[in-house]
Amino acid sequence: MKERSISFILLITAFGALVALGLITYFIFQAGVPLIAKVGLWQFLAGSTWNPTAKPPAFGILPMIVGSLWLTFGSLVIGVPLGLAVAIFMVELAPAWLAVVMRPAIQLLAGIPSVIYGFIGLTLLAPVIRATLGGPGLSVLTGAIILGFMILPTIIAISEDAIRAVPIAVREGAVALGSSHWQVITGVLLPTARSGIIAGIILGMGRALGETMAVIMMIGNSLAIPVSPLQPATTLTSNIGLEMAYASGQHREALFATGVVLFVFIMILNALATTFVRRPGTSRRSA
């Protein structure tokens, strides 16, 4: 009898995450969808004017979508090559002592609060960009560079796992054929680990897309659609983060509606990532 109740209690706890996900989905949609319905999905997504307090108000989130896309892809340009290189380094090249140092260092990189990164972008990188490349400094470029580093741990951890998971036999087969180390890496390891690496990149993308406070600090928060990386912009997340502090009524609903759009994007990315990871739920390190 005791065993039965324990098993039942454990079953209940096991549903915790699923219930949480359900509640989040329900309440975000419930708060945001009515406004999308009223404005019209297309007007909401493709409208280029966001003026929620004007009369009549305008609820177009195209500037934020464009800003999010700029920033996300910009951060991938920095984060993917660097992250892949570091992952290869840790598995293939690093001397033992350095590998021992790298692991906690990467973990620390993941552990540093995002507001600290935002602060570095704001006080250190933005002035440098302004002085060397022009523009206001607080810009897509500044945000993308810092975000690139913020998503590094995700990309490194998952790519590293994927590269390590390549069977020794596969590697030795290539070595036996006389391939150089670099040829083994590019010809055998990376292709074999490809799906894992792609999953890592997609999850990194999700992190970049979802980051909020650091982005607010770095990106200049301009509602104009950016045409150059040196211009300021706003994103889906930064706009929510900034305006939630004072929004009310329809304005607040519009922010939840923005959240709905963000949530859908993220869910699509998550689903993509899971299809690329062959064994979901196993051995993926939490970043």
Binding site: T237, G259, M267
Partner: peptide, 25 residues
Amino acid sequence: RAIRFGTESLAGVPSIIFGLFGFIF
């Protein structure tokens, strides 16, 4: 599989969404 899907998805939800949810709920 459903429970794992929930866990994986929850792990990917951005913190601003948690903020919005926590606020409204």
